[in-house]
Amino acid sequence: MSVQSSSIPKLALQAGSTRRWRTRETVWGLILILPSLIGFIAFYAVPAIRGVVISFTDWDLLTPAKAVGLANYMHLLKDPNFWRALKVTAYYVLLNIPLQTILAMVIAVMMSRLTKSLVIRSILIIPWLMPSVVVGLLWLWLMDPNIGILNAAIRALGGPTVPFLNLPDLAMPSIALINIWQYVGYTALLIFAGLQSIPGSVYEAASIDGASELQMFWKVTVPLLRPVLVFVAVTSVIGSFQIFDTIAITTKGGPVNATKVLNWYIYEQAFTRFNMGYATAISMVLFLLLIFVSMAQMRLMRAGESDV
């Protein structure tokens, strides 16, 4: 994502027109970026600053905001609900990411050996295209303890009723399962695309050297796939930290707060409990956390280096 230094148009054929072209270029450049610049300033830059300002106020939107200094942040430090939300969110990420990435890797590797079929790839991507609202509703129904099909199947096999989303211990794993279903195909295709870009000659060379398949996987595939894996890991971790839709539709933070993730807590504080200032303060903390996590992750996975 680094900014590439652009090459200067080699237009200046006649020295005289150069300056005129330069001015026109500047003018047109500014005109062309103007709408996007307005959009950026109005809906990214100013809100970001405004968010910081709001986070230092006590504001219910109905009455004028009161400046409270660091009070929101101080409150946050000793708000058990915030810390629990943080823990719940981290728990979700830990449940979701490893399983999803490994499963996606397996699917991608299987596909690269078996088929490039457009149909199969299309089927794998379908859940990802669906609104999370639809996915949440659908799984809420599939997982219903009394009349859902999953429990009907479990009971038919002689198992007990599993109240997936209604028991505190099961709710988060169930949410993770739903999101893995939604995103694993997409992740697999990302990795699959990465696999396709590895030239076959690399494997041939390795196999001539007598490498086993497992060795090839660890010594050839994984290192060459590193950029894709880093991309997948960073984006899916950032995405998981921001889970909202699925929880809004299925558990609404319950049972017994078991799925009250940060995003839900922010939404609840802002839009049902009239605490805009506090909600914004939490979102700022989440932002810092995300920057930290993604930087740590890139460092950890040595994204910059190339092994081969």
Partner: peptide
């Protein structure tokens, strides 16, 4: 490009207020 990194929830409340 830096704005790519900003999560949606951070923008939610200020944008809503706007």
């Amino acid at each position: 490009i830096a704005a790519l990194m900003v999560p949606g929830i951070v923008m939610l409340i200020p944008n809503f207020v706007l």
